[in-house]
Nucleic acid binder design. Structure first.
Length: 848
RNA sequence: GCGGGCGUGGUGGAAUGGUAGACACACCAGACUUAAAAUCUGUUGGGCGAAUGCCCGUGGGGGUUCGAGUCCCCCCGCCCGCACCA
């Protein structure tokens, strides 16, 4: 009996697949197509166990669908632009381009041994000029279609480094390198007009039947459609009214102040000559631009001294405050505060001594709000207090609608549908990204680059000398020649735009590019029509909102600009979000009490001590893997030690794919042992023409269950079933012929997960051709049915007994049998049951 | 702060509202072996009991139901996202 040696077997089969061009995606009109895509990786330089999990899941689907007769497209590429490349160049010299491409080479080298069924001929990186040149063409088409425009927007500004910072580069409100408090600064930037499609993007969520409900809910909330009202509040001293937006106008009775954003035009105007207000606005400016930071910050305000008239109650005046919690981007940048029915407003009111007055009570509980705002669900009944439209008891939703109607009738305000979704700012003041293909001309203004000049490629160096990336700021801004170009319209000397595109743009259409990766246009019609949509998209839940929403927007924009068919407006038919791979963190403390992290291989996990010194380590279980915490497990080590099939089998085992999984070395070992068992099961099998009905039943059930598991992304359940099936085969007393048949089915059912081992077994047992190209086994339906089933009997909901009955026995007969059961007779003690519930094929419950 | 999710034995987890703990890890016991590794077999949620069994048990509290890990409400803990990280 030969020992299974993954090290020699795996490369052998990978070569065989290559030679057979088994994974080459071919446009074959005679076959149904299937496009499976995993979110492409950022080329950090090393593959992560999370990548292995992600790509293995996709590979299971791809191989399974291929066996089911589909023409499969399963491509791979690299999301290659972004900050880490520039950071690396800044920290240790070198060039972002060299760093990125060498990382890609390294990662491809680590991925190939996994034996993924990828069509590598379609590979591209988003930093290839052939890719981003087409992206520039798309941008120009979108510009022409009115989907791109320019406006001012805030960025994080590092006043010491004199550079724009990404949110990630702002730590506790300070620049990551300079440690200087960041400021907000206004810049003119490019925007995609995603809000013009807000309603459409929202409506279409309904049709995404094969997306996780949580993702659809998150997208719905993110787009945030709300019906509200714009109400002008007129200053007591005359002058321009302040327009407030509210989604809860029914609480108008409780309004006690107006709050406007520090960036509101009124705030800015008032700040002129008001030192206190200027200081306050400056202070608000010294906060990073994230919404989370704003929301978490202490709510502060300053009274402007202005008062406005209450639109309903004559004689009531409301003070106007500038509040640091009011967002200029949402609504009108001004709100009315109703402390009784909004906790934030209440905290603000208590802090500054503003009025608190209920607009409604809960029915039967006429209590004034003290320190906890009364915020019932909009569907709950409340009792309005002398409501101007005559409402008394009503739901808040009815109250809102009635109030809007009343305001419109009396010309006091205008109902407005608003979206939370903001336009997508795509300008980045950085080098390593796709250049925005426009030119700024003193005479012609902003002029789109001519398409024949594309790609507008990034300059590799400054002519004769290398770019110094250690200087803060965008090297394109200080390049000696790259900026200087003739105006595409008038030919006069002009300046090229030096901002590059957000890397989210790169990943918003790559799925379409894979259908024709070498085309001279962004897509090729026939290929796009054949391959789109992506039938199954797989990636991390962290992309639930931005990446997926941007991709949905881009697919629509590409339809508008003629690059994708209308049918591809929703590019991902089915979405699966997989969980993260986690690992315990091992840490000790230095003399200052700061944590020092240790690599898993340096730790004796059983005793929680350092191998080198025996020092005790603290174990923080189940943390997201990150390099800084040193809790990363390198899949390359696992593959070297046990082979790709073991790594693949393990990442699919145990944890449900959508949940986070904790990596443990013992788990990998167990997977390896099992694969060895399966090989031994096959290795010394005889042959014969004997049959065995019990084993045939096991085969049919295994085919059915494993197939169901794959179809529903229950890979862990498929794996568990395969354990059971393998156990059943080894325990079976069947003859060699029946066993040989069963093991071949086992190999086939395992082949999407452990393709190399399966090929080896297939060949060993005389299977025809490659298992990768063999048709998926079908279960014999007649063998799936059980004739006799066991029904548990519950008495008052607790299991007390069970009975064996024919599967098709009528309900009345089952009832009779149940009542004749010893445990039931004993429990009834001569009486009769209150209720007898028979759920056919499931359970019997006797209620006494 | 806001939006979304998750929480089940020593561990990873299974369970269309219907027998909680499948399958696996680990542990323990046994077989094989001079011995070990490997392999194979068996036991294993907690408690009570000689035993057929009985009681408790899915983060905590409440509710709906004949029946709740699953549905609803409140609380706690952890994770993801919050628009310039990818």
């Amino acid at each position: 009996m030969s020992r299974y040696n993954a090290r020699t077997v795996e490369p052998k089969w990978q070569q065989a697949w290559d030679k057979a061009e088994a994974f080459l995606a071919k446009r074959d009109p005679s076959k149904p197509k299937y496009y499976v895509l995993e979110m492409f990786p950022y080329p950090s330089g090393r593959i992560h166990i999370g990548h292995v999990r992600n790509y293995t899941m996709g590979d299971v689907i791809a191989r399974y669908k291929s066996s089911c007769g589909f023409s499969v497209l399963h491509p791979m590429g690299w999301d290659a632009f972004g900050m880490p490349a520039e950071n690396a160049a800044m920290a240790s010299g070198g060039h972002p381009k060299d760093w990125t491409y060498s990382n890609i080479d390294a990662m491809r080298g680590q991925m190939k041994p996994l034996g993924l069924s990828i069509d590598w001929t379609r590979e591209f990186a988003t930093c290839d000029p052939e890719y981003y040149g087409q992206q520039q063409a798309l941008f120009l088409d979108m510009l022409e279609a009115g989907l791109v425009y320019r406006k001012n927007a805030m960025v994080n500004w590092d006043p010491v480094d004199m550079t724009v910072l990404a949110n990630e580069q702002v730590i506790d409100g300070k620049g990551w390198r300079s440690d200087a408090p960041v400021e907000r600064r206004e810049l003119t930037q490019w925007f995609f007009n995603i809000s013009s499609m807000a309603d459409e993007l929202l409506e279409a969520i309904d049709g995404l039947d094969n997306w996780p409900a949580k993702v659809k809910l998150m997208q719905t909330n993110w787009i945030g459609k709300s019906r509200g009202i714009e109400i002008p509040f007129h200053p007591t001293d005359g002058g321009e009214p302040i327009l407030c937006y509210s989604t809860r106008p029914d609480t108008m009775r409780g309004a006690s102040f107006i709050a406007i954003s520090p960036e509101h035009p009124v705030s800015r105007a008032l700040a002129q000559g008001n030192a206190e207000l200027t200081d306050f606005i400056d202070e608000c400016r010294k906060m990073d631009t994230t919404e989370a930071a704003m929301e978490k910050a202490e709510k502060k305000g300053i009274d402007t001294g202005i008062t406005v008239k209450h639109p309903i109650y004559e004689g009531i005046e409301l003070p106007v405050w500038v509040g640091n919690f009011v967002l200029m981007d949402y609504g009108t940048g001004a709100v009315f505060g109703c402390p009784a029915h909004d906790q934030r407003d209440l905290d603000f009111a208590r802090k500054y001594g503003l009025g608190v007055q209920n607009a409604f009570y809960m029915p039967g509980e006429e209590v004034e709000v003290e320190n906890e705002a009364l915020v019932p669900a909009k569907t709950e009944m409340v009792v309005y207090i002398d409501h101007f439209a005559g409402l008394s008891e009503a739901t808040s939703q009815d109250g809102i609608d009635a109030t809007i109607d009343y305001f419109e009738e009396h010309d006091l305000g205008k109902g407005q549908v608003k979206f939370r979704l903001r336009d997508w700012g795509l300008s980045r003041q950085r080098y390593w990204g796709c250049p925005i293909p426009v030119v700024h001309c003193d005479d012609c203004g902003v002029v789109p680059e001519k398409k024949e000049n594309l790609p507008i490629a990034l300059p590799y160096d400054n002519g004769n000398e290398a770019i110094d990336f250690s200087v803060p700021g965008n090297p394109l801004d200080r390049h000696p020649t790259w900026r200087d170009v003739p105006c595409p319209a008038c030919g006069k000397p002009a300046k090229r735009e030096t901002d590059t595109m957000d890397t989210f743009v790169d990943s918003s259409w790559y799925y379409a590019r894979f259908t024709a990766p070498r085309a001279e246009t962004p897509t090729e019609k026939a290929d796009a029509e054949y391959w789109m949509n992506v039938d199954q998209y797989i990636g991390g839940i962290e992309h639930a909102i931005l990446h997926l929403l941007y991709s949905r927007f881009f697919a629509r924009a590409m339809n508008v600009t003629g690059h994708l068919p209308k049918s591809a407006s929703e590019p991902f038919d089915a979405l699966f979000t997989q969980g993260m791979v986690t690992h315990a963190i091992y840490q000790t403390r230095d003399t200052n009490g700061r944590p020092v992290y240790h690599l898993p291989e340096d730790v004796d996990e059983a005793n929680a001590t350092l191998r080198a010194t025996g020092e005790k380590v603290e174990v923080i279980p189940s943390a997201k893997m990150s390099k800084s915490k040193k809790n990363v497990v390198d899949p390359v080590d696992i593959i070297d030690q046990y082979g790709a099939d073991t790594a693949r089998w393990f990442v699919l085992s145990d944890s449900p794919p959508e949940r986070d999984v904790e990596w443990t070395a013992s788990g990998a070992e167990a997977a390896w042992k099992f694969l060895g068992r399966v090989w031994r099961l096959a290795a010394d099998l005889g042959d014969g023409d004997d049959t065995d009905e019990a084993l045939e039943r096991e085969c049919a059930k295994a085919i059915h269950d494993v197939t169901m598991g794959i179809e529903t992304f229950g890979f862990n359940k498929s794996v568990a079933r395969l354990y059971e099936f393998a156990n059943a085969i080894s325990k079976s007393k069947a003859g060699p012929g029946a066993k040989r048949k069963a093991v071949k089915i086992l190999a086939q059912l395992m082949s999407p997960m452990t393709p190399h081992l399966s090929e080896e077994i297939w060949q060993h047992l005389g299977g025809e051709g490659l298992i990768a190209q063999a048709p998926w086994p079908e279960a014999d339906e007649s063998l799936l049915k059980e004739d006799i089933i066991t029904l548990p009997i519950q008495i008052n909901g607790k299991r007390r007994s069970e009975v064996q009955v024919p599967a098709d026995l009528p309900k009345e007969e089952v009832e009779k049998i149940a009542l004749a059961d010893q445990a039931v007779i004993k429990a009834l003690d001569g009486g009769s049951p209150k209720k007898l519930i028979v759920v056919p094929g499931r359970i019997i419950n006797v209620v006494i």
